[in-house]
Design a protein around this nucleic acid. Structure first.
Lengths: 251, 251
DNA sequence: CGCTATTTTGACCAAGTTCAACCACGGTGG
DNA sequence: CCACCGTGGTTGAACTTGGTCAAAATAGCG
């Protein structure tokens, strides 16, 4: 019997959150942990390709990624798509919608993904009683802004080859920090169409660009995914300093 | 005798803040106003072209624009520049740096600009005692994120003509909301080099693109600036819905 | 095995870049 | 008053990057 596509019942208690154990994420104080545990109303597990949030909708929930990959994107009327960023474990989804009503971007699952679902109505309580968590929320929003800044620089001013190198090095480093590469296999689960829509290029040109990176032994394109062979090399090609982050907050 | 280039003494008390009077910005509660008034340590007035914050520096202050225009940008090692966003009255500058230490972008004055200077060390007090202001800070960060999302879509997926139309319509609408067009004159104080660095285009192609917009009677390029003749037309050309915002917070 | 999604390749085309002038305008100094 | 200079804007020609079209190769998957 097949598993249902989505489940909504509570599964991982925050007290045993596997992300909290990672060195990359900051610790909670006991009272914060208790609040967050209460803030969380359940989990949502969806398959790859499922749309989690839709641009223009108002019923925004607030989520944190517990496991898996997703991406944020916007579309123009004629179907042109721009991927804005990728979501990995520990990332918050739907803050914009929770604060300001209508979503102005969509979110889709890139792999099977599990999300912690939070009750947006309790955000007020959070701001009133947990200033450190409130600070963390602002921090998270500002961090996302930084990532977008770098993306904008990339798309606006880097060549196709530099852009691709930057994107892959960036995803690699972020995924590594979120402990997404448990085994020896270091693979990013995206198609070349995703890469194209992230970089603002056509698929054909993206393919040719990735091939060049492959010829230089920086990456290997696997089926529906990309193995990073030399992230130092990618960073050098992109002229990118890398992504330094000691410990970051999450909710 | 010429006025000094920068002054640091307190001039406009928050109680008489001209921005608070605008319908576009939200009201403060009395205790918030008192706190903010105390949070503000002075004003900084600089000439056009002055660099206000530098990428890589750590001495980040926190500012709000009181009057004038500025812009945020990043540069690559070889001098390629990408403008990320423009700052106008009511906009917060330096939040990223205040929360996370090192600035990862620079800010420059586009016109003579006056800034309210805040004491970044008091941010903790703000979060502990003024949850509504803390919420506003997150809101502001999330709003900036939205703007960057739309920018990314623009640069990644719109044609040069669409991009230019979007940028100018966007700046026009934001500036109008911040009451920057007091007189009859509706002019955005940027050079074509700024437009090029915002859109990710060369200056030559930018010039030709703007000329097309001029031929269609959507804009008129004045000396060191741009007059918007038909913002509806620009929005239509960009396929952009516009920028709906009732009332926004500011600090 | 047949189906669909994805990747790959080649030929041709178009948008945008680079190079190289040239113009307009507002100082500034002689 | 005028020559000179610097900034910003304008223009055309040659060139390059990346886009479009079309078709084939490849890889899961039921």
């Amino acid at each position: 019997m097949a598993a249902p596509k989505t489940r909504n019942n509570r599964q991982t208690p925050c007290e045993q959150c596997p992300l909290r154990a990672l060195p990359h994420f900051r610790e909670f104080k006991p009272d914060e942990l208790e609040f967050v545990s209460n803030f969380k109303t359940g989990e949502l597990a969806v398959d790859a390709g499922t749309t989690i949030l839709v641009e223009g909708s108002n019923s925004a929930h607030l989520f944190t990624v517990l496991s898996g990959w997703g991406f944020r994107y916007k579309m123009l009327d004629d179907g042109r798509r721009q991927i804005l960023n990728y979501m990995m474990p520990g990332d918050l989804i739907g803050l914009q919608g929770s604060l300001m009503g209508e979503m102005q971007h969509s979110v889709e699952a890139l792999s099977p993904i599990t999300l912690c679902v939070f009750e947006r109505d309790k955000l007020g309580v959070l701001y009133r009683n947990y200033p450190d968590l409130a600070y963390d929320l602002t921090w998270i929003a500002a961090q996302e802004e930084r990532i977008l800044d770098e993306n904008l620089l990339s798309i606006g001013r880097r060549s196709a080859l530099e852009r691709a190198a930057y994107l892959l090095a960036f995803l690699y480093q972020r995924a590594k920090a979120s402990n997404l590469f448990k085994g020896a296999r270091v693979s990013i689960p995206i198609t070349q169409q995703h890469v194209a829509d992230t970089l603002g290029l056509s698929i054909v040109h993206t393919n040719k660009t990735l091939k060049k990176l492959g010829e230089r032994k920086l990456i290997r394109w696997a089926d529906r995914g990309c193995d990073i062979l030399d992230d130092e090399g990618l960073m050098k090609m992109a002229g990118w300093e890398g992504y330094h982050e000691k410990s970051r907050p999450f909710i």
